[in-house]
Design a protein around this nucleic acid. Structure first.
Lengths: 352, 352
DNA sequence: GTGAAAGCGCTAACAT
DNA sequence: ATGTTAGCGCTTTCAC
């Protein structure tokens, strides 16, 4: 069994309380001599405070709960990584729950986090789950990556998905495209619904078509994007006739999917951007190494994570910190998939 | 404040102990009538046991610690996700620490996990750190993804990196390549060192060159692979003369890096596989959507994760479970980057 | 079948 | 400046 505080106290010839005072630098002062003696014993015995006991007594676990759809999607992988990094810097541990957008998993993890008395919560998934009948949520600092929270006490740090998607689509429109398809994740997922709405709104604003045959929903993965594209651009596995209803451009709601989209175009023998122009939303590093290079609406994950974490920790430290409500516009990073720049010579020769 | 067990007991007209018996199905029997009454009150009051208190008293936290280099690398992202999924199924929470291969971070997280009384540990990073002077590690079930553990009590579930790398290199040799470059992560990282050793051993076995000019170390990311390739294949940003010492093939230690490698080849105007053949190690889904399709040694992350988690949980459940020592061979998944298959027509026309 | 009670290891208010 | 002590909410042994 590990060394306990009482053992340290006994070995140092002081009371257990003094050991606590030394460890926590308070709430009472300790004479330098005693402090030195206690510290020596702590080191000698290799004493480590039991975090569970501190949590039970002290009421703080130095941990936060974090709900994310998954960590395979580079967008969320980066977000998670950044959040973890910030929390770690401040001495907080992140308890992560992968929800896969499944309401049951969301509620289960939410409950688990509350049972374990996390000091705060960040939702990258399932913000609406906070309406679930769980007690003790109102007293907890919560940050969600949504544009509107179910409860105003929940801080929100959102990406402006509707506007960002609109910008992406508008960019394609400027290249003269009217038949612009939309590849997105499940529309039940709020963020996906918003990006779809952005596509639709921007298309409708200039009387471009937004029919169902232009939209494909699929899993947010390379495979999903790939499948959606095959569905959208091909007839029985072959590209549809050029002068039919085949989209000449695709708006893709995520970088991962876009990677699968590029692959599908290649499989179908469709050139990007000449036959199909593509713009995605994300701006992850993965998008910077595709062939051809993706044009993408970059959403600054690093900044979002930093803001969310710092704000959450501020609310944890001071319960009176008012909730924050922000949203961020992405910015267009122009690559070679939209048609802005002609292909470089080396690209044209790539498979000559 | 949340409802406590005593409040439930009072409301149900029983003693706190009985509430525990009901909740834990033991260790004493409870009459059906009493049980029903208690359960009704629990539901009515929305009572949830305080996991911290249970942990302090019961000695089990229903959580495990997990050390991973990072979650941006799809290989580790998949591994982490699979481990989390298995643990979640068994009611365990995963505490994740991203180490970035930094010894300080590794030790800090290891200590944090011990302080928080995790029930077990999985190391995807820093297995050697278990030699660190931390108390209480010997009593804990530990699984590491290394081939040899510092302490025999540590279960090991390893990928056979040396052999897998050798197979990948041999495949390139069969295509007639002799000058085969090596792109890998930092050689201080054991897994990277093993893959480098595999490349070197296989090359030496047929008297192929293994000079320093054929090796490039870089961060395990797309950008890293990209930079390493530019260094290896170019002179001042241009490809080196075809008949010089430029490698005609590259062995790449990870899929992420390989994606950057492909991109670099494209930037340099080198065709894959005609000018440079490429084989990587990993077999992540990301590798299945590259252009051209990567040939890669697939290491079955899903299986590794399942084995590691199930074994760890078995050891947690029964301390007498003997440690497991396994390693797994990968298998070659042939794509288009090695030169096995000629390019499809559509590919040849891709940028015609 | 049920209740009483002793802690788990710690924090902090209250004594001295 | 330091010691004493009452819990935090729970599990489980021990009585009844």
């Amino acid at each position: 069994m590990p060394v306990t505080r009482s053992q340290v106290a006994r070995a140092a010839g002081v009371s257990p309380a003094v050991v606590s005072y030394v460890l926590n630098n308070g709430p009472r002062r300790v004479s330098p001599a005693t402090r030195a003696r206690v510290e020596a014993v702590i080191k000698k015995l290799g004493y480590r405070p039991n975090a569970i006991a501190s949590a039970l007594r002290g009421g703080t676990t130095q941990s936060i709960g974090y709900l994310t759809p998954n960590t395979r999607n580079p967008f969320y992988a980066n977000l998670s990584e950044a959040i973890e990094r910030h929390c770690s810097t401040h001495g907080y541990l992140v308890l992560t729950g992968n929800t896969h957008h499944d309401r049951v998993r969301e509620e289960r993890y939410l409950q688990t986090f509350l049972d374990r008395k996390v000091d705060g919560l960040i939702f990258a998934s399932g913000v609406s789950v906070v309406d679930a009948p769980v007690r003790g949520l109102d007293e907890l600092p919560v940050v969600g990556f949504e544009q509107a929270a179910a409860r105003p006490a929940i801080s929100t740090i959102a990406t402006e998905d509707v506007a960002d998607a609109g910008t992406a689509v508008e960019h394609l429109q400027r290249h003269g495209h009217r038949l612009i398809g939309c590849v997105a994740g499940p529309p039940q997922v709020p963020a996906e619904a918003r990006k779809i709405a952005g596509w639709r709104g921007q298309q409708q604003s200039v009387d471009n078509p937004t029919g169902d045959e232009l939209v494909a929903f699929a899993e947010t993965s390379e495979a999903g994007g790939n499948a959606a594209t095959l569905q959208l651009l091909s007839e029985h596995g072959r590209p549809t006739a050029l002068h039919g209803r085949r989209p000449t451009a695709l708006f893709v709601a995520s970088d991962v999917q876009a990677i699968g989209v590029l692959f599908a175009c290649y499989e179908l023998g469709l050139r990007v951007p000449q036959d199909v122009a593509i713009v995605s939303v994300g701006g992850t590093t993965a998008a910077a190494f595709t062939f051809p290079l993706l044009t993408t609406m970059r959403q600054d994950v690093e900044y979002i994570a930093a803001t969310a974490t710092e704000h959450l920790l501020a609310r944890i430290a001071d319960a009176d910190t008012p909730p924050l409500h922000t949203s961020l516009r992405g910015n267009l990073v122009v690559g070679l998939s939209c048609g802005c720049r002609p292909h470089q010579a080396s690209a044209d020769e790539y498979h000559a």
